[in-house]
Amino acid sequence: MEYLIHLAILIGIYVILSESLNLVVGYAGLLSVTHAAFYGIGAYATAICMTSLGVNFFLSLLIGIAVSVLVSVLMGFVLSRFRDDYYALASLGFNVIAFSVFLNWNALTGGAFGIPGIERPNFLGVVFSSPLAFLLLVAICVALVHLFSKFIVDSSFGRALKGIREDEEALRVFGYETHFYKLIIFAIGAGLAALAGSLYASYITYIDPTGFTINESIFILVIIILGGLANLKGSIAGAIVLVLLPELLRFIGMPNEIAAQMRQLIYGAMLVLLMLYRPKGFLGEYRI
């Protein structure tokens, strides 16, 4: 039972990550390969606030989101100059830079050793220490993120984003400040990824840089492409499938070290097969 709750919490965290990335990649058509950087910024900001400054989890979470949004706006200014392949490359570059900051800014991030001893959330004396209580918290966050994302994509703002994705020039002719739209959706995606990072840090109670590499960004990308770009339900389904699939490897008795590599092998192969046979993913409404 504990194990099932653990998986449900992980799925919840990945649903947040994939829905937020889908807003950027699927709806706005910006191929971002830097989502793990924001996930990491949220996790680190929360961990640092809680362990070094003794700030409450919920305040730390907000700080994490704020830092992530701030960084994403700065990045977004640079990224808004690029398109397609160059966008992917430059965003990947930001992930490398973020990773090297997590790894090398020892005084702040603890370097390769990371930050241990992060506490579980405490809300006015109610501590979400049991897995079930934490699952409840994650479920609430997932619901809020899903409703918020749904609200965005159904709004006129979301329709403008899809317009930009299909034909940016045309939207500009109609007087839309397309750069501004792209920057906003990128910042929203980053803020939501930071929320997932905060939850992860507090749940695992220990973070180190290896969780926030380019491979993690690619993994989130595989989730949304598998589920389908520009489809939020697809992202939920994708997260469930791709979090559970590697767990099967553990059931057939594969050692942990190999299982981690097999997981990477599987999602790499999945990416290639999807591109070859179904670039839209299963429920996709947009193809790259």
Binding site: V33, D85, L221, Q264, L265, L271, V272, M275, I288
Partner: peptide, 12 residues
Amino acid sequence: TVLLVASLGVFT
């Protein structure tokens, strides 16, 4: 872009 994503998969 599809080729780029496929090559990311190959790399992985």
